[in-house]
Computed example of a mutant assay.
Amino acid sequence: MAGLIHPSSLERWQEWQSTRNRARQVKHAVTSAVRSRRGTQQMPGLMLHSREGEGDTRLLIGLDSASPTSRASLLTSLPYLRIGVDVLSPAGLDLPELAGDEWTHQRIEPATTEDEQRRRLAVVLDRRGIGAVLTLGQHLAAGRAAHEWALATDTASAVVQHGALTPYAPPLPPRTTLLAWSDADAEFYRSGRDDVEVRTVGSQLLWQAGKESEGEVDVTGQKPVFLGQMHGAELPRRLTAGIAMSFCRAEGALYRPHPSEVDVLSRAAHKLMTRRGVEFQDTSIPLHEVGAPVVGIFSTGVLEAAARGIPSWVAGEKVPAWVREFWDRYDMRRWGGEPTPALPTGADEPSRLIAQILEGAG
C-alpha cells in the first residue's frame, strides 16, 4: 500500500509545503524581515490551560487551532478523563471547552529563539507530573513544542488522526503512537516506520456525524453542492478550480468555497466562476445543515455527509493516481453511480477509547 511522500522528515515536508504557495511565502518573508529590523521578531506566544484531576499523573494536550475539527479530535475526550489535564495552545484561541471555573490559565511569554522557547516551556512543564502527550501532530507550533518536550523527557506521546489522509500529510513525530480511524489508515500513515505504534480507535468527527443523523435525507429537487478545495496544497489550483467549474456548469451545482479560499488567486478564480455562470452557496449556513447532495474531490466533508445520511460523491477527471487510491481507501463513490456509504463506526465513542488509552499510558 502507498504511504506518505515524506514519511519521517518534517524538514522535507516543510520544504515541500513552502513551494506550494510562493505568493504567501513571499508575503510572510517580507513581514518577518520587517519585524526583525524593528526588533519585534518573536516565537508565537503560548498559553497553558490546566485542570486538576485524580492521581499524580497528568495529560498534556497540544492544540494549535480552535477549528471544529481540531476541538472534536482533541477536546471531546475531556469529559472522560479523570486525571489532571494541561492544554498547550497559541495565545488568543477561543476554546469554550476550557472556559469553566475548574480551569486555570497561564501565559508562557514569547521568546526570540526556539531554544529559549523550549527552555521557558520546560520550566513550566517539567514538574507537573505529565505522563502522556496528545496532539494532532508536530507540524504546528503547540504540537511541535509538546512533542519536542516529550522526546526530551522520554514521555509517552500520541497523535490523533483528524482528517482523511493524503500522501502529503505531515510525518508523524518520532517514537509516538498513532490513534487512527481505520487499520488501512494506520498502515498508510505509519508508512513502514518502526518507531511508530498504531491503535485503531475510529473517527470522532464521523462518529458524531452519524449520531446526529436521522437516517437517509431526502434531497429531491436540491442542487448538488460542490466543496471547494482551492486552498489545498496537494493539488494544483488549476486542477481543483477546473474540476469545480466544469462540474458546477455541467450539473448546475452550487459552489461552496472553503473558508481558507480568501487569497488573491482564490478570489480571482471565484470571479471567473461567477462570470461563467456558476452560483455560490451561502457559506453562513453550516455545512452540517446543508440538506443537499455533496460532491468533492478529496474532501473529508464527503465522508461527513455520508455519515449524516446525505448522498455524497467525488468527481474529477485526469486526477493523479493517489486521488483514486484515496477514493478507494475511503470507499468514496464517483458521481453518476451509487452514493458514498457511511464508513463503519465502532460501538464505543472514539473519544472514550482515546481517554482510556491515555490514562493507561502514564
Rank of each mutant, 00 (worst) to 15 (best):
V294W: 01
P236L: 13
V196H: 08
Q138W: 09
E116L: 15
E216L: 13
A99M: 13
W149D: 00
R107E: 14
R58N: 03
T69K: 12
Y168V: 06
E212Y: 06
D263Y: 01
Q117A: 15
S191E: 09
V225Q: 04
E251Y: 11
Q41F: 12
S213F: 05
M230A: 11
A146H: 08
V225H: 02
A315D: 05
F247S: 02
R238D: 11
P44I: 04
D195L: 06
R51A: 11
M1A: 11
L63M: 14
E11I: 10
V290I: 15
E279G: 03
P171D: 07
D101A: 14
V295K: 02
D348E: 15
V264T: 14
S32C: 06
S67G: 05
F226I: 03
G210H: 10
A91G: 08
A186K: 03
R256N: 10
L265P: 00
A111L: 04
P7D: 05
P79L: 03
D263F: 04
A269W: 00
P350D: 13
L265M: 08
E325A: 14
T345Q: 15
I243P: 01
V323E: 02
P174A: 15
M47C: 09
P293R: 06
W322D: 00
K318L: 13
Q138P: 00
R199C: 01
G228H: 02
R35H: 12
V201G: 01
A268M: 07
Q14A: 12
P293D: 11
A244S: 11
E52N: 12
E279F: 00
G202R: 06
T166C: 00
P167R: 11
I357T: 08
P173H: 02
V160W: 04
L121M: 14
T76H: 13
G62F: 06
V124R: 05
Q222L: 06
H139N: 13
L303D: 01
G131T: 04
L121W: 06
G192W: 08
A146G: 05
L48S: 07
L287F: 13
L206W: 08
S8K: 12
I297K: 02
G45K: 11
E234F: 03
F298V: 01
K211Q: 15
D64T: 06
L227Y: 08
